[in-house]
Structure formats: C-alpha cells, structure tokens
C-alpha cells in the first residue's frame, strides 16, 4: 500500500520555542539571509512559528501556530506551474523539482499559506557554517522556489532501511527534523493511510482542524486546537 504522509500539530503542546525552525534550517540546508535581507523579506523558513496576540496589555495571550507546507491534496500551487516543477508525488507530497523551476513564483503567489520561498540570490554560508551542510539535501541556486518537503530524504532513507531489513515501516520510525526536535512532541508525523498510526488517530480528533479549510485545499496537516 502506498503511503500518504501527514502531520498533526497539537497547539496545546506548542510552546513557541522554534526548535523546529532551527532543526529544519540545519537539516535542509536553508540559506542564511542575514538581518538586512531578512528585513527586506528574503529570509527563508520552511517552517515558522506564527504568533498571534489576543487581548489588550497586560492581559495578553499569545497563540503559537507552527506553519509549514500543508502538503495539500488539492494544492493551488501545482496546476499553476508552467513547467511541472511543482507537482504531486505518488505519496501525496507537493514536491518541488528545483532543476525544473524557472522562477515564475506563480506557485508562491497561489499558495494561501505563503510557505513557498524564492531564492532571490545565490546562497552563501559564512565560514565555517558551510561545514554544517547536509549532504543528503541539495542546495538551491538563485532563481528557484523551494519549500518544506516533509524531509523527503528521511522518508526515502527510512523506506530503504525497512526494505533492506525486509520488514514493514513502523509508525513513528520516520521523523522529519521538526518533529524530531520538538521537545513537547507537539508535532506528530506519519502515514495517514495507516488508520492505526498516531497521526491518523490525532487527525480524527474532535479538536482537529485544517488551516484555511474553507479554501478547499485539503491539507494533510491537522491542527489540534487549544483547549486551555
């Protein structure tokens, strides 16, 4: 049976520590923009923690919401790409083929979650940061769009490992960097085609909602709303 990768985010557990953001950056060779370019909107973060404030000072409540690619089943980013750089994989991921991307940035405009990022220039890593580059992930050049892959390199490695050991993949065996680094286990990753997996169980929760659900994008990320 093919896999259908999905994620559940428990907003009750998220503390907004941004460990996921840092882990993702290291795992996926995300470029460093620097303060000046970041202020000009050139920073890239495949996952970000959105902060929303409720109430007036001093009774302020902060709400955190980690937002990454929702890996939509009806993704607005896919049909608009004129070169098929942005396309749907068999396992339901919204893949971005960097080699095929010519940088129209149409996908990034069409994405209602703004989780697609453009390489405005060529990436640079100040010494010795280049030593931290992950050899399993390609570095993106100037002019292409990039986005969260659900750490597809880890998914593929996990599948190969299971195949080599002649066994089925276990639930929770594959963990994207953000999931692995989350100290409160707010992020859960797994196979939505397996009804017994934890992510399937959480996705069926009565607290479960999808982000901007009324747009009809059918996201594969489920947010469990705060109870407190």
């Amino acid at each position: 049976m093919t896999h259908r990768w999905g994620m559940a985010v428990d907003l009750d557990r998220c503390t907004g520590c941004e460990a996921c953001v840092t882990a993702c950056r290291t795992e996926n060779n995300i470029r460093i923009a620097g303060p000046e370019q970041s202020a000009r909107g050139r920073a890239i973060a495949w996952i970000r923690v959105e902060r929303y404030y409720e109430g007036d000072f001093p009774d302020v409540r902060v709400k955190f919401r980690p937002v990454m690619c929702q890996q939509c089943d009806a993704a607005p980013c896919e049909p608009v790409c004129p070169t098929y750089a942005s396309h749907h994989t068999d396992e339901g991921l919204n893949a971005q083929v960097y080699n095929r991307c010519i940088g129209t940035r149409y996908c990034a405009n069409a994405c209602p979650y703004n989780v697609r990022f453009f390489n405005f220039g060529n990436p640079v890593w100040d010494r010795p940061l280049e030593l931290s580059l992950n050899p399993d992930v390609s570095v993106r050049e100037v002019g292409v769009v990039e986005k969260c892959t659900f750490c597809v390199q880890r998914i593929n490695a996990g599948k190969e490992q299971a195949k080599a050991e002649n066994r089925e993949l276990k639930d929770g065996e594959i963990k994207p960097a953000c999931v692995q680094s989350c100290p409160t286990s707010a992020l859960v990753f797994g196979d939505l085609n397996d009804p017994e997996s934890e992510v399937s169980r959480l996705s069926r929760s009565s607290r479960g909602t999808k982000l901007l659900e009324d747009l009809g994008t059918l996201p594969k990320v489920t947010y469990l709303q705060r109870q407190s």
């Binding site: 000009r40 909107g41 050139r42 920073a43 940035r105 990034a108 453009f118 405005f120």
Partner: peptide, 15 residues
C-alpha cells in the same frame, strides 16, 4: 548577474 535580490519584490509579494 545578481539575481532578483536587487529588485523590490519579497516574500510574499512575489509579483
């Protein structure tokens, strides 16, 4: 030669 970094477009105003 520099890339669109010299233009004013940014995330998420890509056009």
């Amino acid at each position: 030669s520099n890339g669109l970094v010299v233009a004013g477009i940014r995330w998420p105003i890509f056009w």
